[in-house]
């Protein structure tokens, strides 16, 4: 499709906004792994794979897993943002394989924020 007008653009914006809030389709949330070069050098690939694996293992298919660029928090990379339903997004830092497993188990499944990994509550 070619975008030719403001209306076309607005339509796509609407779709995109659903994506960003993690509620496109029948999804109820979104986990974002910062995958810039810095994140990757701190092990973000393993983090991403672990999250996907753990969600799979637990039969969870209503959480979108996406990658983003560097949030600027390189010191605590790998960083992961979790946004579920209408809750405020939460950013976790230093998320290695073990931490990624805990995030799925405790936050996604258990609904509890992991205070020890918390960096910041909202991305904005």
């Amino acid at each position: 499709m070619k975008i030719k007008s403001l209306e076309d653009l607005e339509k796509i914006k609407e779709e995109g906004l659903k994506n960003l809030s993690g509620r496109q389709g029948k999804k109820r949330g979104r986990i974002t792994v910062a995958m810039g070069t810095c994140g990757i050098s701190a092990g973000a690939k393993d983090t991403l794979m672990t999250i996907i694996d753990e969600l799979d293992k637990n039969g969870i298919d209503d959480i979108a897993v996406v990658q983003s660029g560097c949030m600027g928090l390189c010191e605590v990379e790998p960083t992961v943002e979790v946004q579920i339903g209408d809750q405020e997004p939460v950013i976790y830092g230093n998320v290695g394989i073990e931490e990624a497993k805990r995030i799925v188990k405790e936050h996604v499944i258990g609904g509890r924020i992991l205070g020890d990994l918390l960096v910041k509550k909202s991305a904005q």
Partner: peptide
């Protein structure tokens, strides 16, 4: 937009008012 959008998604960029400036 860093850390906010998926860089591989143009829709998410547009959702953050992307390409409105070009228009």
């Amino acid at each position: 937009n860093l850390g906010v959008i998926d860089p591989a998604s143009i829709e998410e960029y547009i959702a953050r008012d992307g390409y409105f400036a070009l228009r």
